[in-house]
Design a binder for these strands. Structure first.
Lengths: 285, 285
DNA sequence: GTTCCGCATGAATCGATAG
DNA sequence: ACTATCGATTCATGCGGAA
């Protein structure tokens, strides 16, 4: 099949089925794939739900296409968590890991997203679920990684030093450590920063009315900074309300978003427009 | 085979091979199994290390015996983490989960132990590993669980209390209380407490006195409070330096410990003696 | 008695070197 | 080519000695 070159897809929300759109995208063309696909049996009212026991079978062909479109030195970050069913955790996620390895993916790491404010609730046999998996897959042992881009202030250093900062600086400092913005004092801190671990401690974003995005900007933002440079291409095959696109824009990366639900596509485009205006206003673009 | 009744094993450290000792323990006799088995290829200077690719095969017969000795309403908490090898996470842990389900275990939950102080190091392809799995298995859908026993202090009482602590102590206190650790937990009123999540945040106990236990007392302590009542029997088939026994004693539970290394057995017995003395001194036992 | 600083110590992992 | 061993890297913690 003759494929259109990649620049036809860049900075667009492609409204349609992943299984039809992905095959149109040329091979070895994106630097990072980061996504939070619909979880099994969740959000029934919005998506055509995928039963837990068919999840692997449904996702594997998509994973295979994703591997094709990813550059050899690129990364795939899959944010996912198995549901509990009949008093047990379902096994479709760990089965998926094994099957993706059979496809040729390397399972490099499992990052944990430790959710600061998790969904409330009480059950007799378990507590609130406060974490999700962020599975890191690659095509090769060697891949692009920019660890300095996500360094964080030292534990003790931060505590000691915060006392001497004004309230205003404190705010800036806080926002920096969470999302990576606020460059004012970043140089000043450089020597006193350390590398993070494989546990991300981030709050979920309270749903802004329309979309039920449990996927906070800070999450794709962290992986985009870690695995790409400015100008690189970030693909999210289940982009929902456009969170990954927003993160990409903020970081001067290019995005490709795929979304099947038209209402979500519209929502994403609205959010992106606002973000672009913000960038223009701040003289960024 | 004629088995001795369970009281012959209670409050003892049994020095020998798990595979020989477990079959002597009667069926349906312990309320909780909590353990941190030797990880694949780790602690080579101490244990005969189990290669990663033989790990499942090695552990499955043990898991089967554990299921036999566990009471029907009991729980099994397995603390484990896969290693990274050749740039990838190994799959033996997730394979083990699938195989244990085949044996009849229910995989109820995966708790995350978020380690505050993880092992240092820097690599081109990953960050420091700051978490471990605490896999919760049971025999039945219904099992014993005492959620109130691990509730976390919050509210005004805690705030008042915190005022009088130094900044540094406050940090420590908070990190402990986030996951429900901390010794004075019983002092809080019920209305000032909330249920924890499935993420436990606590430091490892490193370079402590004579023994260095990567398995901190607070970890078995939390699960013992959650899954047992006073007087119940707690089994640790890889008890090492006796951490699980210490936790059991502190909480007025009975322990059964198995350990293959004689030096560790001695160490465990020493620690237990000290703990018993402490309990006597405080008028507990 | 406190507080503070310096130091050794890990359930690690990768890349290079050696056989 | 494949395995075994070693050095380099890194940081929260608890201890001991000093002020």
């Amino acid at each position: 099949m003759e494929l259109k070159p990649i620049y036809n897809f860049i900075n667009k929300i492609l409204c349609g089925d992943v299984k039809e759109i992905l095959p149109q995208i040329p091979s070895n063309s994106v630097d990072l794939i980061v996504t939070s696909p619909p979880y099994a049996d969740k959000r029934k009212n919005v998506y055509n739900t995928i039963p837990a026991n068919k999840y692997v079978e449904w996702f594997l062909p998509i994973a295979n296409e994703l591997r094709r479109v990813l550059k050899d030195n690129g990364s795939f970050v899959l944010n996912i968590k198995e549901k509990a069913e009949n008093g047990e955790r379902h096994t479709y996620v760990i089965e998926l890991i094994l099957e993706m390895k059979n496809q040729g993916w390397l399972w490099v790491e499992e990052y944990i997203w430790h959710k600061k404010n998790s969904y409330p609730g009480k059950w007799p046999n378990r507590f609130r679920d406060a974490w999700e998996r962020c599975l890191h897959f690659t095509k090769q042992k060697k891949f692009k990684m920019y660890q300095e881009a996500v360094m964080i202030p030292t534990g003790n250093w931060a505590k000691e030093r915060l006392k001497n900062l004004s309230e205003r600086d404190k705010m800036r400092f806080e926002s920096r450590s969470k999302s990576g913005f606020g460059k004012n004092i970043s140089n000043w801190l450089k020597r006193d920063k350390v590398y993070p671990t494989n546990v991300l401690y981030l709050p979920t974003e309270c749903s802004n009315k329309n979309h039920s995005a449990a996927f906070p900007v800070a999450l794709p933002s962290w992986f985009i900074r870690l695995f790409t440079e400015e100008g690189d291409i970030v693909l999210d095959p289940f982009i929902g309300s456009g969170t990954t696109a927003v993160a990409s824009l903020q970081l001067n990366r290019k995005y490709i978003g795929i979304e099947i639900k038209e209402e979500y596509c519209k929502l994403a485009i609205e959010r992106i427009k606002k973000e672009v205006k913000l960038n223009l206003f701040s003289g960024k673009a």
